[in-house]
């Protein structure tokens, strides 16, 4: 598999002494779903922000499609997208207006067809003309996922994408993401505190703690290595080192 995201020695130090990310290195491959797991304050969000160019690294290197995020930001971001359950879309605009704005920001051709296709895929065609403020949080999450797929990205960063969805919609969303990954060869970096979801979704996971990578590999081999029956047990062993 071809590596499309290369991270080498990535470091972020805040206020001269607080090391949020401590020299991590990893690759992300085409068509792979890579999970980023760790307790609060492990450095996941900071890593994600650096990958998206929102935070400047203190040291190390990030290459996406062989390009430097700090030098070739526009070229990279045209082929990348992001969705998080912590962000939203302008409330007064309708779903269609919001998606139209982002289609134009990403330079999507035939965007009307693309919007229809995505709304249909996520089964929310009926809310197309509704203002975003009238949607449930689950519907907003799905509209945000539509936004994240508008430009047919090669790399998708998803920060707890199913956090506000009910089990039925969350399950459908996971299946959809896997299907889209299979069809488009899309690489997904996935963060979630739902360990069962990570086991189901991810080809490989990275466990982070105190800014460092503690374990990396496919979920089965990590469970074997850490002697856990599931990722949740592994998570607890990492988060509670005194009880190991």
């Amino acid at each position: 598999m071809k590596s499309i995201v290369e991270v080498r020695g990535l470091t972020k130090v805040f206020n001269k002494y607080k090391k949020a990310v401590d020299g991590i290195s990893f690759d992300m491959y085409e068509g792979e779903i890579l999970g980023l797991i760790g307790p609060n304050g492990a450095g996941k969000t900071t890593t994600l922000q650096m990958l998206l160019g929102l935070t400047t690294p203190t040291g190390g290197e990030i290459k996406i499609f062989g390009l430097d995020i700090n030098k070739d930001r526009e070229e990279i971001l045209r082929q990348v997208n992001f969705s998080s359950s912590y962000i939203s879309l302008p409330y007064s605009l309708t779903v269609e207006e919001n998606l139209t704005v982002f289609s134009r920001l990403y330079g999507v051709k035939n965007y009307k067809d693309r919007i229809t296709e995505l709304l249909r895929t996520f089964e929310i065609e009926d809310i197309r003309r509704l203002p975003t403020r009238r949607l449930s949080s689950g519907q907003i999450t799905r509209v945000c996922l539509c936004k994240a797929l508008l430009n047919s990205p090669r790399v998708l960063f998803l920060d707890e994408p199913t956090a506000s969805l009910d089990p039925d919609i969350a399950d459908k969303t996971r299946h959809l993401l896997k299907k889209i990954r299979g069809e488009q060869g899309l690489a997904i970096l996935y963060t979630s505190h739902n360990m069962k979801e990570m086991e189901e979704m991810c080809d490989r996971v990275i466990f982070m703690d105190k800014g460092r990578i503690i374990a990396m590999g496919d979920p089965d081999s990590i469970m074997r290595e850490w002697k856990g029956r599931n990722l949740e047990e592994v998570f607890l062993k990492i988060a509670r080192p005194g009880e190991r």
């Binding site: 929102l54 526009e74 971001l77 990348v80 998080s84 962000i87 990403y106 330079g107």
Partner: peptide
């Protein structure tokens, strides 16, 4: 919506 803007091109 600010992050959506700043992670766009």
């Amino acid at each position: 919506n600010l992050l959506n803007i700043f992670v766009s091109p």
